[in-house]
């Protein structure tokens, strides 16, 4: 099967203050249609940079990104991003107005009736129907997150990019959003790439996990656990321990990316590349 997203030797380095180099270096991977991919690593490992490169907000220094065989060269609604932070809705539009504005901008042929119905459909899907005519300031953090998801799905992107989407929520809200995301993913079959630093979230959600450290892709593994994934299962805890070790491993990787994992993966056996 042809991959939907292909990232080839992507490098994007920038100097931050005190000559600390941040960014990503020589990153390559592929994502198939419909996959739910978790990108995990400690803060400053370049995972957000990667997502912004795919979204087209950042230019790469070298390397290429392909979506459906076409080279990515700037932002576009085929790769819709859910950012960090709760200020992503336009405050001058109602929740429904935000969805309609997005759809109208992307697809100019839709009639007002179609726009309205489609907006209502997606708000229903995320459980926000009762809040459709409210303004963003009237919504709680969790409701805003739902609205971001509804808007992102309403423009029918090929891939949904999420940058630590639920980082600002409490444990309950986070759990609810994770369940909702899984439900939406199963329903729409959309391809999702999400960045997180929460190992549990990564295990619960992803099919495939990309482990980043200091700007390089250290491991690319498939999640061996069947859904639904329960913390109570021994297999879950075993995988959690292994993944934690991979994320926290602090070996010197200055000389190019280490593609072979240094620990023995008993059942996380599909190592890409």
């Amino acid at each position: 099967m042809k991959p939907l997203i292909k990232v080839k030797a992507l490098t994007r380095i920038y100097d931050t203050s005190q000559n600390v180099i941040a960014g990503i270096k020589d990153v390559s991977f592929e994502v198939r249609e419909g996959e739910l991919v978790g990108i995990i690593g400690r803060s400053g490992c370049g995972k957000t940079t990667l997502l912004r490169c795919i979204a087209g907000f950042e230019k790469s220094d070298s390397g290429e990104i392909f979506l459906d065989g076409k080279r990515v060269s700037g932002p576009g609604p085929d790769r819709f991003m859910v950012f960090q932070g709760l200020d992503q809705l336009f405050p001058w539009l109602t929740v429904k107005g935000n969805l309609i504005f997005a759809m109208k901008t992307v697809n100019k042929d839709m009639t007002p009736k179609e726009l309205r119905e489609r907006a209502e459909y997606f708000l229903e899907l995320v459980g926000l129907s009762a809040w459709a005519d409210r303004y963003p300031y009237q919504l709680s953090g969790g409701m805003k997150q739902r609205a971001f998801l509804a808007r992102a799905l309403s423009v029918s992107p090929r891939v949904l990019l999420m940058d630590e989407p639920f980082g600002s929520l409490d444990a309950f809200g986070r759990k609810a959003m994770q369940d909702l995301l899984l439900k939406l993913w199963e329903k729409t079959g959309i391809t999702i790439l999400f960045v997180t630093h929460d190992i549990d979230e990564c295990i619960k959600l992803s099919d495939k996990i990309l482990v980043f450290a200091r700007g390089t892709l250290k491991y690319s593994i498939y999640n061996p656990l069947p859904r639904p994934r329960m913390v109570e299962d021994a297999a879950y805890r075993e995988f959690l321990a292994k993944l934690s070790r991979m994320v926290e491993e602090e070996k010197d990787i200055a000389e190019g990316p280490a593609r072979e994992p240094s620990i023995n993966l008993k059942w996380a056996d599909v190592i890409l590349q």
Binding site: A55, F57, P75, G76, P77, R79, F80, M81, F83, G85, D87, Q88, F90, P91, W92, F101, A102, T105, V106, V155
Partner: peptide, 24 residues
């Protein structure tokens, strides 16, 4: 974030200015 949502939707230049920057 609001500027980037606008750009993500494919807006730029005068269109971005009128429909996002002005109200924001």
């Amino acid at each position: 974030n609001q500027l980037e949502v606008g750009r993500n939707l494919g807006l730029s230049g005068v269109k971005l200015a009128l429909s996002v920057m002005l109200p924001a």
